[in-house]
Computed example of a mutant assay.
Amino acid sequence: MKRTFIVPVMMVSSVIGLTSCVALSKKDYRKLIAERDSLQNTLADCGSKGDSLQALNHKLKGDTSNLGDQLRLAQEQNELLFKDYTALRNNSSGEIKKLSADLAARERNLREVEAILKSRDEATNALQKKLSKALLGFSESGLTVSVKDGKVFVSLTDKLLFDTGSIIIDTKGKEALDELAKVLKTQPDINILVEGHTDNAKVRNLGQIKDNWDLSVLRATSVVRYLTEVQKLEPIKLEAAGRGEFIPVTMENTTEAKSKNRRIEIILSPKLDEIYKLLQVKN
């Protein structure tokens, strides 16, 4: 690269002019030569540093260009990420709103179910109290009224209803069923399951009754017939079942224990149509 150094040349020219017009001493001459050499060295250093600075400048320009490219790439990626984030946020917002609405609906549904169950429990307890009061006179004959799992259980021992091995309801048993029917007629929203139970003694010499299954079923159907045909309860509400000897009250093998196991259980359960409807809506 061509450089112009005005000051040093002028100084050299001045020196030459001086030497041509004025006689210099050797001392002055050497001094001037030394100054010239110093200036030339300085000039060389400046040239070297100038080259280094130019190289550094070139490198910095290259780095700046690379950084500019990286910045543009980062900006493009940032824009893409922002678009993805915006789309995801919009979708998430919609999903969150939907989930929140579903959750709110489920909570409302649950509160409605809980309210219905609470109402049913209150009705069940009221029915239990009403039956206990109506059937109080038969408690000494082995009749009990209890609540279990949201249902009312009216348990009548076989000695209250039947003679030994018989499926024909006796007078005392009919009186108990008459009082029971009076209460049941005031309860339009209940289902009635009549279960027959026996002890584990084998059935002998009972004609058409082959075993405890037969005896338990026939006793249950006798009670159902009396309640529907005599007391005029709606047949659609009643169901008869025989459990035989397989759901005993007690496992003891005493005469008293066997007497407890021989029983008719009338299980009264509230209709859960409202709850079923709610669950169907929920699903």
Rank of each mutant, 00 (worst) to 15 (best):
213 W>D: 15
34 A>I: 00
178 D>C: 08
105 A>G: 04
274 E>P: 02
6 I>A: 14
55 A>N: 12
184 L>F: 11
264 I>T: 03
160 L>T: 05
144 T>N: 07
263 R>P: 03
91 N>R: 15
212 N>W: 09
115 A>Y: 04
154 V>H: 05
64 T>E: 08
131 L>D: 14
91 N>F: 02
74 A>T: 13
36 R>W: 12
237 K>W: 03
96 I>T: 10
256 E>K: 10
49 K>W: 05
166 S>D: 10
61 K>W: 01
252 E>F: 05
112 E>T: 06
93 S>G: 13
282 K>V: 09
163 D>G: 02
195 E>F: 00
253 N>G: 09
91 N>I: 08
103 L>F: 08
226 Y>P: 12
239 E>K: 13
14 S>H: 14
101 A>D: 14
5 F>A: 09
196 G>R: 00
271 K>R: 12
216 S>Q: 06
62 G>S: 11
232 K>G: 11
163 D>Y: 01
272 L>K: 13
218 L>N: 06
113 V>R: 11
184 L>W: 10
211 D>V: 00
159 K>R: 12
132 S>A: 12
145 V>A: 03
150 G>P: 07
136 L>I: 09
251 M>V: 12
27 K>R: 14
154 V>A: 08
245 E>T: 01
145 V>M: 05
199 D>W: 00
48 S>H: 02
112 E>P: 00
88 L>I: 02
43 L>Q: 14
86 T>G: 03
266 I>W: 01
265 E>G: 03
116 I>C: 01
115 A>D: 12
279 L>C: 07
175 E>Y: 03
248 P>V: 02
254 T>N: 13
282 K>W: 15
179 E>D: 10
114 E>C: 06
32 L>V: 08
271 K>C: 09
148 K>T: 13
137 G>A: 10
26 K>D: 12
14 S>I: 08
173 G>F: 03
14 S>E: 12
233 L>I: 01
193 L>A: 11
55 A>L: 12
108 R>M: 12
195 E>M: 01
205 N>P: 01
214 D>G: 15
276 Y>P: 00
130 K>I: 05
115 A>P: 00
133 K>Q: 09
154 V>L: 07
39 L>V: 06
263 R>I: 01
221 T>E: 15
7 V>W: 10
34 A>G: 06
162 F>L: 05
123 A>H: 03
64 T>I: 10
224 V>H: 14
44 A>P: 00
203 V>Y: 08
64 T>F: 09
42 T>D: 14
187 Q>D: 07
208 Q>F: 02
122 E>R: 02
42 T>L: 08
175 E>L: 09
57 N>E: 15
223 V>L: 11
12 V>L: 13
230 V>Y: 05
126 A>L: 11
114 E>K: 08
283 N>L: 06
195 E>A: 06
203 V>T: 06
164 T>M: 04
135 L>P: 00
248 P>L: 02
275 I>P: 06
125 N>W: 10
52 S>R: 07
87 A>G: 00
146 S>T: 15
230 V>A: 04
191 N>I: 03
88 L>S: 06
250 T>H: 04
75 Q>M: 13
4 T>H: 08
208 Q>I: 04
76 E>G: 06
199 D>C: 02
155 S>N: 13
252 E>N: 07
77 Q>P: 00
224 V>P: 10
43 L>P: 01
180 L>G: 04
119 S>D: 15
197 H>S: 01
38 S>A: 10
98 K>N: 15
212 N>S: 15
116 I>G: 03
